Amino acid sequence: SSQSQGISSSSTSTMPNSSQSSHSSSGTLSSLETVSTQELYSIPEDQEPEDQEPEEPTPAPWARLWALQDGFANLECVNDNYWFGRDKSCEYCFDEPLLKRTDKYRTYSKKHFRIFREVGPKNSYIAYIEDHSGNGTFVNTELVGKGKRRPLNNNSEIALSLSRNKVFVFFDLTVDDQSVYPKALRDEYIMSKTLGSGACGEVKLAFERKTCKKVAIKIISKRKFAIGSAREADPALNVETEIEILKKLNHPCIIKIKNFFDAEDYYIVLELMEGGELFDKVVGNKRLKEATCKLYFYQMLLAVQYLHENGIIHRDLKPENVLLSSQEEDCLIKITDFGHSKILGETSLMRTLCGTPTYLAPEVLVSVGTAGYNRAVDCWSLGVILFICLSGYPPFSEHRTQVSLKDQITSGKYNFIPEVWAEVSEKALDLVKKLLVVDPKARFTTEEALRHPWLQDEDMKRKFQDLLSEENESTALPQVLAQPSTSRKRPREGEAEGAETTKRPAVCAAVL
């Protein structure tokens, strides 16, 4: 046999249950609850290399294929790409003598399909299967379609040439079993990697079954959420508030809700932002270029202005709740996480202390139980975000031990490091100062900020419009641009040419 590394010779191994799959997660993409704000000051410096380099560890398999027929071997997927077919160049070659004697062998292509993985959001991997055969590759009886790919989820059954000719079961060793999710959700989405997690739940990458488009699904544990919100009269209202707010909003710089499922837990389906959180971008770069800050901040102002015009105060604006559309420097941003939002009543007064301390406005800290506050709290938070983006460190921090965090904020005395700000323009610093004003009545509004000289930049605004146009074009394009080929190089076993392929839609398939 010419099988590559990772293939075992026996096809009769006992199949494990899916609970053996491991679970991976990374930083929070968007969480309903406010958790302790991640610290920006503690960015690790590059460490000196050791005298002796450690040995390379043996790579762990990321997936496993269990053979369902004699003549096929099990495969431990270690590499990122595997070709399957009769050709000797394939990493998994159909060359077992037992297999060659079967009637089905002649229906398999020289290069029938490939399984591979690509880097997705949060640097996690996504597994795909890609059909290159004349007679078809099927996943859970659905045709992939020649020249098309679809994501592979845990426990997928792979069939060759005929939908009933099941050859492998695919085990993704990095994700959960699909069966743990409600059927209504599974009918519409293929669940994938964990993108982030918080005290009350997690955010998962998923794929729409009909279109193969990526989405983010925010899962909120009702049990954990009820415990964490025990002081509230009705904890469920917080989730329902977020859903109702998101459904009503329609702005290019605000995250869109696509679906909602109320089962044992809450499942909020949101558009996916491939670039992750602004927080991670700031930490990764230490600070952002001023031109990049301007492009992002302009969009934040437009989003918050839209919220305020619609009578909504976000109340928890922070870099973790600003998501980026891509890994590119120039990209769209979207505001997310409306769990603490407040729809303005007639009095415009709110007395609930919520939000993240580092970003809270002075009037929030001094008015607990005594007075109210209004939309100006969001403008203060925007000032803190702009400060961080321009400088790479927070204006107020618990680690300045000589003054408490509350006193720093209520006095408006931010930590100004001259040598850092020497590289920032006077106009940018002036806008920061106009937003970090203790008196909410004297603080800049979103309208005033948008009129500030720093943002009178036609090149930046043109760039934003171009990015918007690109997004609109990409969302308007159909996901499947061509029909699967019906040509046949070899006959199917026991049926006429093209008899099955043309009847089945290529579900969740995307043209390369």
Rank of each mutant, 00 (worst) to 15 (best):
T475W: 00
P418A: 05
D337C: 04
Y298E: 06
L436F: 01
T336E: 00
V377Y: 01
L278W: 02
V377P: 00
N250S: 07
E290M: 13
T336D: 03
P505T: 04
L288E: 09
V364A: 10
Q327H: 11
Y266V: 11
I313M: 14
I257F: 04
I255L: 03
K294P: 02
S348D: 05
L353Y: 10
Y414S: 04
K489A: 05
G412Q: 03
S348Q: 14
I417R: 01
P362L: 01
K489T: 00
N310E: 05
W421Q: 03
I333N: 00
G412D: 03
V366Y: 13
H399E: 00
T446H: 08
K256V: 07
T370V: 10
Y373S: 02
F260W: 12
P362G: 00
V366T: 04
A509G: 14
K433H: 14
E363R: 02
T502I: 12
P484I: 00
L302R: 08
R287D: 14
Y296H: 14
E495Y: 06
T486K: 05
T292I: 13
V366Q: 12
R351M: 06
R375T: 14
I268W: 01
L360T: 03
C253R: 05
C253H: 10
L365W: 14
E277Y: 06
H399I: 00
Y306T: 10
L272Q: 12
K289R: 08
I243Y: 06
K286G: 10
S397F: 12
S404T: 04
I388T: 13
F261Q: 10
D378F: 04
C508S: 13
L295F: 11
L302Y: 09
D330H: 11
A361L: 01
K289F: 11
L360W: 14
I343L: 09
D330A: 14
R462M: 07
I245R: 01
P505Q: 04
G355P: 00
W421F: 13
K318Y: 04
G284H: 09
I245Y: 03
S348M: 09
R351V: 06
C253E: 09
T336M: 14
K433R: 10
P440A: 01
N259Q: 11
L323A: 02
A506T: 06
V368Y: 09
K413M: 00
W421P: 09
Y306N: 04
R492S: 11
A361M: 05
S397T: 09
L512H: 13
D262V: 10
E458W: 12
P252N: 14
K342D: 01
L307V: 12
I409V: 13
E398L: 03
D265Q: 13
K258E: 11
E493R: 00
T347F: 09
A263P: 05
K281T: 13
S341Q: 01
L270I: 07
L365G: 06
T292E: 07
T502W: 15
F338V: 02
L249F: 11
T486W: 14
D457W: 02
K281D: 04
G276I: 04
R400S: 08
L278I: 04
V269F: 11
E423G: 00
T358M: 05
S326Y: 12
R488W: 09
L386R: 01
Y296R: 04
K441S: 15
A291R: 10
A303G: 06
P484L: 13
E328P: 02
T501P: 15
L344N: 15
E447F: 07
L405S: 05
Q483V: 12
R375E: 15
K256Q: 09
V377F: 00
L332D: 02
T502H: 11
V420Q: 15
A499G: 04
L450V: 05
V366S: 05
K258Q: 06
S487G: 11
Y306A: 08
Y373D: 04
A482F: 07
H308V: 03
E271T: 10
A482G: 11
P484Y: 00
T352S: 14
E423V: 09
R488L: 05
Y306S: 14
P418T: 11
K434T: 04
A371H: 12
C293F: 11
K413V: 08
L317S: 04
L288Y: 01
D265K: 13
A291M: 07
L360F: 08
V364T: 00
P440V: 06
L455R: 00
